[in-house]
Design a protein around this nucleic acid. Structure first.
Lengths: 188, 188
DNA sequence: TGGCTCATGTAATCTGTTACATGATTCT
DNA sequence: AGAATCATGTAACAGATTACATGAGCCA
């Protein structure tokens, strides 16, 4: 297990709770996890194969009729690997926001362009926030399960940061509209 | 220019203001840009070569003595390419936070582990926040330059989100310490 | 003299994305 | 019948990380 591939951990984490197929894993990843981690089929299926070869998961054929379906189950070694990762103090936290990158270099295109870019970001954030809020509310009312507290905490991280994003958008637009600026940059 | 490689835009954006060497570009990227975009030499040098081949930048040798140094300059075509990107409505904004990923799957390791992981995140965030705050303050007092308003806005995005991160850390730790939980998950 | 910073680049490797290929089932 | 969804996988490509290789200048 010299591999540090994050998709492996996501798969192990999901399988820790229930047996799933590759397709199921994709669906889970498109859900509540998606705002801080993404995956694709071209990513998931090879990882499942590797994890099976490393004996961290086992594969069981559960095809119904002619439709093929392989369900994966985590092994004890898999649980150990997951726990080892959880206990490892290293964690890479990366923000890759093209909107901020554009804003940083926006003097080349003028204020109208930067305001529009902020508005696009604002709209997307508002949409995502609604989804996260719904998610958060349903988790608040289901604290019976030990897992739910962790789901709630991650979702609430999303809600709180997205709310700040929206406040920042308003502030940024206000500043860009209010302060004086030379019109040369604008007209070029 | 069918390429969508972000490192190209970062280089063009930086060269828009001043002529720089590959080494300089790396230094700039390690500065204020680093919290929302990262780069490495193995990334920058090949990109510089490609951009030169596409005539978006030009290379000038400015070696001093035996120490080699190549300085790059943006062309008009380069400025056009940068502007085209700035005006393009598409923007990919991705958060890849391993800390959140771990937290989401933390029921496998228990509360003590998750609290420690949050504390590690908290410490790193506090460190980064101080750097961003300093950056933000110096930009507030230098609004003479049109570029500075954009630098300020991106830095203030960082400051505001990091402050929320810290508030969330406190809340999360409190919840994890306060609510009752079964000790089986803890002892396993 | 030794260590740090300046300075450029390559190569191996890893990882992810996208598109493609295939085919069954279910719903309207 | 046709569209959407279920379901698995591969191949080509893109992009980034890491380590490596090299060497000069500067400072203590």
């Amino acid at each position: 297990m010299a591999q540090e591939r994050k998709i492996d951990k996501v798969i192990l984490g999901l399988l820790c709770h229930e047996d799933l197929s590759g397709y199921d894993i994709k669906k889970r990843m498109d859900g509540a996890v998606s705002f801080f981690w993404k995956g694709s089929f071209g990513n998931i299926y090879p990882a499942l194969k590797d994890l099976e070869n490393s004996a961290l998961i086992t594969k069981t054929d559960s095809s119904v009729g002619g439709r093929e379906r392989s369900v994966y189950h985590i092994t004890d070694a898999g649980r150990d690997a997951l726990k080892e990762w959880l206990c490892d103090e290293q964690a890479s936290n990366e923000l890759r926001y093209e909107t901020l990158l554009k804003l940083f270099f926006s003097s080349g295109a003028g204020r109208e362009v930067s305001i529009r870019n902020i508005e696009l970001f604002e709209k997307q954030t508002a949409r995502d926030l609604e989804i996260l809020k719904t998610c958060c509310r349903s988790l608040e009312n289901a604290q019976d399960n030990e897992d739910h507290i962790y789901y709630y905490l991650t979702a609430s991280f999303g809600v709180e940061t997205y709310e700040v994003y929206l406040r920042w958008c308003k502030k940024a637009k206000k500043i860009l509209r209010a302060t004086p600026h030379n019109s040369i940059a604008e007209s070029s």
